[in-house]
Nucleic acid binder design. Structure first.
Lengths: 198, 198, 198, 198
DNA sequence: TATGAATGAGTCTTCATTCAT
DNA sequence: CATGAATGAAGACTCATTCAT
C-alpha cells in the first residue's frame, strides 16, 4: 500500500464491509468513513468491487506473509496452527456484522460483478490455503499429524476458525469456546478406546 | 407447504438465491424461474425478504424434522452424525452458487431489512443446532464421544459439512474428500501416540 | 339505480371515496366494502373512474331532484336555501376524509383519466347550479335578495356550505358555526350603518 | 428558499401539482419540468410528499408574511381584505388544473402518506387563518364589520376567494365576477328592507 | 353472473458512477 | 488531486384490470 489515502480508503472499506456486508455497503458510507469525498474513491479504485477485491487481496497478502514468515520458525506445526488460529479468531471477532469477510466461500460468488473478483482473489486464496497446507504437511512429516490430505485439512482448519465466531452467537464463553474448538480440531470428538481407560 | 404455487415460488427462489445470493437475486428472476408474473410473488409473500425467510424456515423445519425422526433410531450417535453429514453434503452440493445457504453465519446479517429475518430464523437455527447437540450428548453418554460442549461441537459439526463444499472448489475428489473430512471431524488431525505405533 | 348490486357497489364506493379520496381508494377497498369480489365491480362499471362518475352523477341527480321538487313549494327563497344548506351540510359532515366529494372544483380535474369524467359530470353540475340559481332568481324577483348574478350567487352559496365542514377542523361548535355561516351568507359581514344604530 | 436548484424544483413542482394534482403528478414530470434528473429531486427533498409539503409551507409562509406586513397599514379592514382577495384571486387564476392548491380542505387529507403533511401544514394553515381573523377582528372593533366569529369569518373569506375561480368555469366575466363575489361576501345577498326602498 | 388468482404496466426510490469546478 | 452535485439505470413493489373457472 504505497499511497496513504489509498490505505485510508481500504481501512474504511474494511470497516464498512465488515459491518454491513458487500451489497448493503454504500460507496458513500466508505467515503464518509474514510473522510474523503465519494469521487475520491474513484481516483484510487475502479469501482466498488475493485475496493473489495483490493481489500481481500491485501488481507490475503498480509496473511500469506505472516504464514511465510512462520514457515521457518522452529515451533512445531501444532504450535504454528494454534498461533494462526488465535490470530484469525481475534481478527474475526471484530467482524460483528459480516462473518468471514475473507472467508473461503466468498471465493464462490458468481454474480455478474463478482466474476472479475474471482480471478483476482481465488489464486491468492489458494496460495493462502497452500501455505496452511504446507504447515500441515510438515506436521505430517514430523509425525505430529495423521496422514491427511493437507489441502483438505487446510480448508478444514480455516473453517474451524469460523466456528469460534459463530459460537459467539450462542453466548458461549469466548476463551473457553476457542480452546474447545481448537481441541476438537486437533483431536476430533471421538473417544479413543485407550483414552477411555484413563 | 400447503399451496402449490407457493411451493413453486419457493423452489424457484431457492434456485435463484442459491445461484446468485440474496441481494443480487431480482424478484423478476424468481418470477421467471417460477413461471409466474412478478406481481404473483406478492400474492404469496410480503416482500423479497419474506421469501428468503420462509425458504430458510422451511429448510430448517425439514432439517429439524429429519433430525427428530432420527433421535429414536437405534443407530449409534456416530452413525447418526454420518448420515446427517452425508445428507447435508449432498444438499449443499447442489448449491453451486451460494455456499451455505442455510448456514450458521446467515444468522448474523444485520442489514436493516434483515433484522426481521433474525427473529424468524435465529430460533429455528438454534433449535436445529440443539438437535444436533442432543445427538452429540447421547454420544457422550454412550462413551462414543469425548466430554465436549455439545453445542459447540454441534456448530463445529455443521461447519464441517461446509468444508465438503469448499473442497469442491479445489477439485478434490468428492467422495474421498467427504470421507476425509468426516474422519477429521471425528478423529481430529493429531496423531495419537499409540496410533503412531500401529 | 335499477340493479341492487350496482347500488351496493355505489354505496360502498361513496364510503371509500369519502374516506380516502379518489386516487388512494383501491378497487379492492370498494369490493370489500360492498361485500363482492373485485371482478364483480367490472361487471357493473367499466373502470374505477366510471364508478366515480356514476356516483357523482347519481348524487347530482338526487340533488337536482330534491331541488326541483322544492321549486314549487310555497316557502320563501331564503327558507329554501336554508333547507338546502342544512341538508348539504349534514351530508358533507359524513365526509370526514375527503372534503367536498361532490364539490365544484372536482369539475376541473384534468388528469388523463379524468377528462372523460368532465363530460359526464360537468353538465349535471351546471344543471345543479342552475337549479340553485333559479331559487335565487325567485328570491330576487320577490325582493328577498339583492340583484345579484344568480349563477355566481349559486356558486357562492355552494361554496358556503363547504365552510361548515372546514370549520369543523377548527373545533368550532357545529350548530353555532353553521348558523353563523348561513347568517354571513345572507347578510354579509359588513355592518350596515342603519343596523349599527339599533 | 436559499438554494437555487431547490427553488427551481419547487417552482416546477408547483406547476406540475397545479396542473395534475398530487397523485397523478409523477416525480419524472417534476424533474422534466425543472430540467433536472429524477435523482436530483431526492438530493433536495426526501420524497414526493416532502416536495408537496415544502411547497405548501413556502406558499403559506409567503402568504402569512404578506398578511403580517399588512397588519399595520392604515387602511381599513375592508380595504385590506379586498387587497388580499384580489391578490389571491390572481394567484388562483394561474392554477388552471387544480383548484385551490393551497386550500383549506387540503388540510384534511388522511392518506397514509399525507399524515406527516398534516403536522407540517396544518399549523401554518391555522396561522394563516388567524392572520385573516385578526384583520376581521380589527374590522369589528372599528365598527366596519358585524360581531361575527373572526375565525369562522376568516374561513368564510378564504372560501370566497375560491368562488372566483370556480366562476371562471361558467365563463363569467372575470373582473365583474370577482367584484360581485367580493360584494356578496361583504354585504350578503339579502336585501335590506331599508335598502329596498332606495 | 360471480369470483379472485394472476398479470404486468407504471412509479417511486436508491445508489454506483461521472464530471465540471 | 479532490470534490460533491448531478445523473439515470435498475429494481422493489402496487394495483387496476383481465379471465379461466
Amino acid at each position: 500500500m504505497k499511497n496513504n489515502k489509498e490505505t485510508k480508503i481500504l481501512q474504511a472499506a474494511e470497516k464498512v464491509f465488515f459491518s454491513k456486508g458487500f451489497f448493503p455497503a454504500r460507496m458513500e458510507d466508505i467515503a464518509d468513513e474514510a473522510g474523503v469525498a465519494k469521487g475520491t474513491l474513484y481516483l484510487y479504485f475502479k469501482d466498488k468491487t475493485s475496493i473489495y477485491v483490493h481489500l481481500m487481496s491485501y488481507r490475503l497478502e498480509v496473511a500469506v506473509n505472516v504464514l511465510e514468515s512462520m514457515q521457518h520458525a522452529k515451533t512445531s506445526a501444532t504450535e504454528k496452527l494454534e498461533k494462526i488460529f488465535d490470530g484469525w479468531a481475534h481478527y474475526y471477532s471484530q467482524a460483528k456484522g459480516m462473518t468471514s469477510f475473507i472467508s473461503i466461500e466468498n471465493i464462490n460468488l458468481t454474480t455478474e460483478i463478482m466474476k472479475e473478483m474471482e480471478n483476482q482473489i481465488k489464486p491468492k486464496m489458494f496460495k493462502f490455503i497452500d501455505n496452511i497446507a504446507r504447515i500441515i504437511k510438515t506436521g505430517i512429516v514430523n509425525h505430529e499429524f495423521k496422514k491427511v490430505n493437507p489441502q483438505v485439512a487446510s480448508i478444514f482448519f480455516l473453517n474451524t476458525v469460523r466456528v469460534v465466531q459463530v459460537s459467539h452467537l450462542y453466548k458461549i464463553n469466548v476463551k473457553d469456546g476457542q480452546e474447545m474448538i481448537k481441541e476438537m480440531f486437533f483431536n476430533g470428538i471421538k473417544l479413543n478406546k485407550k483414552e477411555s481407560k484413563r
